[in-house]
Design a protein around this nucleic acid. Structure first.
Length: 234
DNA sequence: GCGACAG
DNA sequence: ATCTTGTCGC
């Protein structure tokens, strides 16, 4: 599988933004390509779900990404891939995608299966300019994507009910940009938002199916473990 | 102007 | 994200 960004062994692709102003301009331009009106893959039907995550060593200017493909029904790992690169952008809230995406796409390129859905660490639509990491990855790859974040960003929400599956809207004014979703009783919720070509209801359904035993989806847990291991060996 | 702020 | 010991609990 080869996706949008060009090949550049270690570093960011040619033309990758280097300033915050250039990066926000890219977001404003690509935002219009996000597809929000497809229900997308259906929770409970056969699917290959891919988790992606990244680990950093800013000292050495090294970033390692992992893509782990799971059978959505059994949660068995069916394929995995990693990639190592140079840090492409500093961490700036709202511009996370510019830091993670080049290496994530390199890892996806090496994955020998076609993802039916990609689950990202972080947000998609729930973003100041409605174009978070998951949205950006979706537009560049064309794949259905969604985001599951561990912390609330800048959106307000009521605490969801206490039971697994309880949810409350993440609100930007009156607009529901995502959902705080309880995956485990007595444990703080995760924050779900759509990326590309998947509905919020389905994204929440997948999150619950992927996170039965732990707070976070197995896709995220598997990708996190793998990218950390890849960073050590880099 | 001053905080807050996904990873 | 990352720096980090022990500790409580299944």
């Amino acid at each position: 599988m080869t996706y949008a960004t060009t090949e550049t062994p270690g570093g960011p692709p040619p033309g990758w933004p280097t300033t915050e102003a250039a990066a926000t301009a890219v977001q404003d331009e690509l935002r219009g390509r996000v597809v929000l009106d497809e229900p997308g893959p259906v929770p409970g039907e056969p699917l290959t779900v891919v988790g992606v995550d990244v680990a950093y060593d800013d000292e050495r200017d090294v970033v390692a990404a992992a893509a782990v493909a799971l059978d959505a029904e059994t949660l068995d790992v069916v394929a995995e891939a990693t990639a190592v690169g140079r840090v492409a952008f500093p961490y700036v809230p709202g511009l996370l995608a510019f830091r993670e995406i080049p290496t994530v796409i390199a890892a996806l390129d090496r994955l020998p299966v076609r993802p039916g859905l990609v689950v990202c660490d972080g947000y998609g639509l729930a973003h100041p300019r409605r174009f978070g990491l998951a949205s950006h990855l979706g537009v560049l790859t064309g794949l259905p994507t969604m985001g599951v974040a561990k912390n609330p960003f800048t959106f307000r929400h009521e605490p969801p009910g206490p039971r697994r599956g309880d949810a409350s809207p993440l609100l930007d004014g009156e607009e529901e940009v995502g959902r705080a979703l309880r995956t485990r009783e007595g444990v703080k919720p995760v924050y779900v938002s759509v990326g590309h070509r998947v509905s919020l209801d389905h994204a929440c359904g997948f999150t619950l199916r992927l996170a039965r035993e732990f707070r976070l989806p197995e896709t995220t847990r598997a990708a996190d473990a793998l990218c950390r291991a890849a960073l050590r060996e880099a």
